[in-house]
Amino acid sequence: MSLAVAQDDPHHLGVLAKVGHEGPASKRIVTGYGFWIFLLSDMVMFSCFFAAYAVLLGQTAGGPGGAELFNLNNVAVETACLLLSSFACGMASIAAEVRSHLWFQVAMAVTCVLGLAFLAIEFHEFADLVARGAGPSRSAFLSAFFTLVGCHGGHVSAGILWLLTMMAQVYAKGFRADIQRRFLCFALFWHALDIIWVAVFSVVYLLGSAA
């Protein structure tokens, strides 16, 4: 048995199935773990922006502060969009696992539309702030605000491009193992963005308008 296994199974995965815990993990686990580490490093990067924002919170240079600028109704709608799109993405992962093309594409389309709605509201908010003379060059506080929230928005934009390529890949190639791994990474990315948004709306908007 051992010779035959060694030849058509160079990584001894067959042995692992007999032995148990030793040996390399499956590709899906390694891929997911690697992407999880990337996401954690992304969160560390966001924590730097949060630290910069917290330090510069009072440095408004005589300009407007958070309480005058933020519209909490907008933020509530944005939060609802992102939360529901995270849920729709979860539905897409279930559809991917049971290999239902129709439900996968429907759930991904819903995820995409909600993500685009979030981006549209955020873009509108930024344009409004700039039009009122509260652009990123007004004060250190606003520079930090636009960097932090804009960085999250940039991640969402990149996520939507990734989402569209995932829809196309599943449509063209079906639920192959490598496509499933890519989708696992996409789903992790999209849920992680929602976690970062929780920090953004709590720290930036709610604390900003409460204080």
């Binding site: 199935a17 815990h21 993990a25 686990i29 773990y33 992407f35 696992l184």
Partner: peptide, 14 residues
């Protein structure tokens, strides 16, 4: 084999 791995370990998100 995937089944065996599935019982042993989790990918994040799985």
């Amino acid at each position: 084999l995937d089944e065996v791995h599935r019982r042993l370990e989790h990918a994040p998100g799985d």
